[in-house]
C-alpha cells in the first residue's frame, strides 16, 4: 500500500499532476486564535527553483515545515511529490531532502564518517535512474568540504557547517530539496559561495528546490521564481521582472512651480503629469518621476509588517496587485 502511494507520484498515469513537485490549495495554519497562514495556493512545477520571500513572521517556516511533513496543518490540501506529507511514508521520505536550520547536532562526528553513515539509509531506495546515495567523497567535493573530511562537525566554521548541512540534505539525491533560511548569519563571502553551490545543485539531476529567505537580493539571485508571503498570504508571485510590474506601487513625482519645490504621489504617473502640465503650463519645472523598484516595495512591506501596522496583504498601503 505504501509502495503504491509513492508509485502514483512517479508513475506515468496522471502525468499532469506528476509534473507538479508541490501543490497546495487553501493551506491554512492557526495556533489557538492566531492565523499564521490564511489560505496559501501554490503550484511548483518539477525542476523549478522557487524562493519563498517574506519578512520574519510571514509564515515561511511554517509553510516549509508543513511541506516537509514536520508539522500538521489546520486546513487545506497539500501534495508534495504527489503525496500528502502528513501521510508520507519512508519511500516518499527518501525522495525529499531537507536542510535544517539546526547546526549543533552530530558535533563529535567527522565529516566523511557522518556523510557515509547518513547515506546508508538511502541504499534500498535506489532506482535505475537514480543510484542512491552520493558517495561521501563525491559529496564533499560537490559542496567544497574535501579539506575538512576528517574534521569534527563541531569544529567547522559557520559557512562550512552550512555546507555540511546541505550535503546531508542532498546525500539521498532528492527529487525535491527544502532549504529554510540557508544563509542566515553568513558573511558576504560565505553567502557568495553558498549561492554558487545552490546554482550547482539546481543544474543537477533536475532537482526542484524550495528555499525561504527574507532577503530580496538573495531570492533574485537564486531562484527562477519568487513568491512573496506576508501576513499568511501570497501577495506576489512571478519572476523578479514580473514582480516589478505586478506590485506596481505609487510613483513619486517631484517638480517645482515657479521655483517652489513640490512632491506628489500617484498611482498613474503619466495621467498625473499630464494634469500638472495642464494646470501649471510653463510655470512647471524640475520634473522628476520615480517609479518604485521591487526593492522599494518590498522594503515598505517589511517596514509596515514589522511595525505591526497591518496583517493582511490586501490592506498594504501603496501597493496594488
Amino acid at each position: 500500500m505504501a509502495v503504491a502511494a509513492s508509485r502514483t507520484a512517479t508513475g506515468n498515469e496522471g502525468a499532469a499532476a506528476a509534473e507538479l513537485a508541490i501543490e497546495t490549495v487553501g493551506l491554512r495554519m492557526r495556533y489557538g486564535a492566531k492565523d499564521v497562514l490564511r489560505g496559501v495556493d501554490l503550484q511548483v512545477p518539477r525542476g523549478q527553483v522557487i524562493a519563498l520571500l517574506g519578512p520574519n513572521g510571514a509564515g515561511k517556516t511554517t509553510t516549509i515545515e508543513i511541506l516537509e511533513g514536520f508539522r500538521g496543518r489546520s486546513a487545506g490540501e497539500v501534495r508534495v511529490l504527489g503525496v500528502d506529507p502528513a501521510d508520507g511514508d519512508e519511500y516518499w521520505r527518501a525522495r525529499v531532502g531537507i536542510v535544517l536550520q539546526s547546526w549543533r547536532d552530530h558535533g563529535t562526528w567527522r565529516v566523511r564518517d557522518l556523510l557515509h553513515q547518513l547515506g546508508r539509509y538511502y541504499t534500498p531506495f535506489s532506482t535505475p535512474e537514480r543510484s542512491k546515495p552520493y558517495g561521501a567523497d563525491e559529496l564533499m567535493e560537490l559542496v567544497g568540504l574535501t579539506a575538512q573530511a576528517t574534521a569534527r562537525a563541531g569544529s567547522l566554521s559557520g559557512g562550512q557547517r552550512r555546507r555540511l548541512d546541505v550535503a546531508i540534505g542532498i546525500v539521498g539525491k532528492p527529487d525535491l530539496l527544502f532549504l529554510d533560511e540557508p544563509t542566515v548569519g553568513f558573511d558576504p563571502q560565505a553567502r557568495q559561495e553558498f549561492h554558487e553551490l545552490v546554482h550547482r545543485l539546481a543544474n543537477l539531476e533536475e532537482t526542484t528546490i524550495l528555499l525561504t529567505t527574507h532577503d530580496l537580493e538573495e531570492a533574485e539571485k537564486l531562484s527562477d521564481r519568487i513568491v512573496i508571503l506576508a501576513g499568511g498570504k501570497i501577495m506576489a508571485d512571478g519572476t523578479a521582472a514580473e514582480l516589478g510590474r505586478q506590485v506596481a506601487g505609487q510613483a513619486e513625482i517631484k517638480y517645482s512651480v515657479a521655483g517652489q519645490a513640490q512632491v506628489d504621489h500617484a498611482d498613474d504617473a503619466t495621467a498625473h503629469v499630464r494634469e500638472l502640465f495642464a494646470r501649471h503650463g510653463d510655470a512647471l519645472g524640475d520634473l522628476e518621476v520615480h517609479k518604485p523598484t521591487l526593492e522599494d516595495i518590498y522594503m515598505t512591506l517589511v517596514r509596515e509588517f514589522e511595525a505591526g501596522r497591518w496583517t493582511d496583504a490586501s490592506t498594504l498601503p501603496g501597493v496594488t496587485r
Binding site: E90, W109, R120, Y121, P124, S126, T127, P128
Partner: peptide, 29 residues
C-alpha cells in the same frame, strides 16, 4: 513486497534491515 527494489537492482535488504544495520554501525562509532 519489495519487488520494486529487486527491479531497481538496489540493495536486496529491506529498508528497515538496512536502517538497523546502519544503526548498529552508528552505535559502534
Amino acid at each position: 513486497m519489495d519487488g520494486r527494489l529487486d527491479a531497481a537492482g538496489g540493495d536486496p535488504m529491506t529498508p528497515r534491515a538496512v536502517a538497523v544495520k546502519a544503526g548498529l554501525e552508528r552505535g559502534w562509532v
